[in-house]
Amino acid sequence: MSEAGVIHDIGYQRYEGPKLGRGALFGSLYVHGIRASFGLGRSAKAKIFPWLVAGIGLLIAVIDAGVKAKANITLFDYYQFDETMGILVVFFVAIIAPALVSRDLRAGVLPLYFSRPVRASDYVMAKVAALISAVWLLLGVPQLIMFLGAAFTTKTGMKGVWHEAGNLLPGWGYSVLWAVLFSAIGLLIASVTGKQAFAAGGIVALFVVTTPIVGVLSILPSETSRNLAGLASPETLVGGISTWLRNKPNAGIDIGSFGPIYGIEFVCLVAALLLLLLARYRKVASL
């Protein structure tokens, strides 16, 4: 007696709709990254820290706007707000960067991503853009509240509003510098391990270790050493660029005439971090 195979029709059909390309996949990764940065679509536990940091930033901005409205006193400008939030930004990146990339490494889903039209460069740029956007929103939204508070309490009409807008836009640009550098550092470190705790500890450790180096260099007898001390830490590097671009020697770290050196290091450092991150994921994609 011969056995015959039986084909069962279980209702599967070929997909005949529109096929989205790399652009749509990049957009999906980017939007998912921003949502994950603030815990949207995740558990309540994942929302606590990012929204706590965001709440602190908003509270600081509201207090500044209130004091300016009542007493016409500015507690800090837009640049100083970023520097005030500096330590919180470090911890925000330390928590969020591993959530964006370490989880994928641990779950082993990268081969699934790269089996589609997504390239390693698409994945890297989507994650970088998402974290940069999240950090910028963390800083930029409170700055907008500070602007609105100043604009509605100005006593010089539209002239005062335009003057305040002229201060806000460079402040937003300064926030972009913080977001770009810190995000690139955080994602590169997080891409090394699938364990989020190790990645977060490594990110915080980098900032903790580099800060004393700046302190040591800044007390050396050589004036050149003191002026270049800020190059040793991400926070002081960005602060040095602010001092250079604003041409205010007393606004932050003393950089002397080495402002262009700070700008060159920033560009080279960010480029190197992104290239290393891309090389890391191209290696993963080839496995």
Rank of each mutant, 00 (worst) to 15 (best):
L110M: 04
L137N: 06
L187D: 03
L105Y: 00
W162S: 15
A129E: 06
A107P: 01
G149A: 10
L181Q: 06
Y123I: 06
K155V: 13
V118G: 10
A107Y: 06
A190V: 04
G171M: 00
A184N: 12
S115L: 08
W162T: 13
I145R: 10
N167Q: 14
M146N: 12
G171W: 00
A165M: 09
K127A: 11
G173P: 05
A126T: 03
Y174M: 08
A151Q: 10
V118W: 03
A120D: 08
L139P: 12
D104H: 01
A184I: 09
M125D: 05
G166S: 02
V109K: 04
G149Q: 09
L110E: 03
K127D: 03
Y174D: 01
T154S: 07
V141A: 13
W162I: 09
L169N: 01
A165W: 02
L168S: 08
L112V: 12
A130K: 05
L112G: 05
P170N: 00
P170T: 05
Y123G: 11
A134R: 09
V141E: 08
R116V: 09
L177Y: 06
G171N: 01
R106T: 08
R106F: 06
A165D: 01
V141S: 05
I145T: 12
G108A: 07
V135K: 12
M125P: 10
Y174S: 02
V124T: 04
A134M: 13
I185M: 08
L168T: 02
V135P: 07
L188W: 10
L144G: 10
G186E: 11
S133K: 11
L131V: 11
I132N: 08
L105M: 02
H163C: 00
A184M: 04
R119Y: 03
A184V: 11
T156A: 12
A165L: 14
D122H: 12
V180C: 02
F152H: 10
V124W: 12
I132C: 14
V128C: 04
A165I: 08
G186V: 11
I145H: 03
G160P: 10
I132L: 14
M125K: 07
A129P: 08
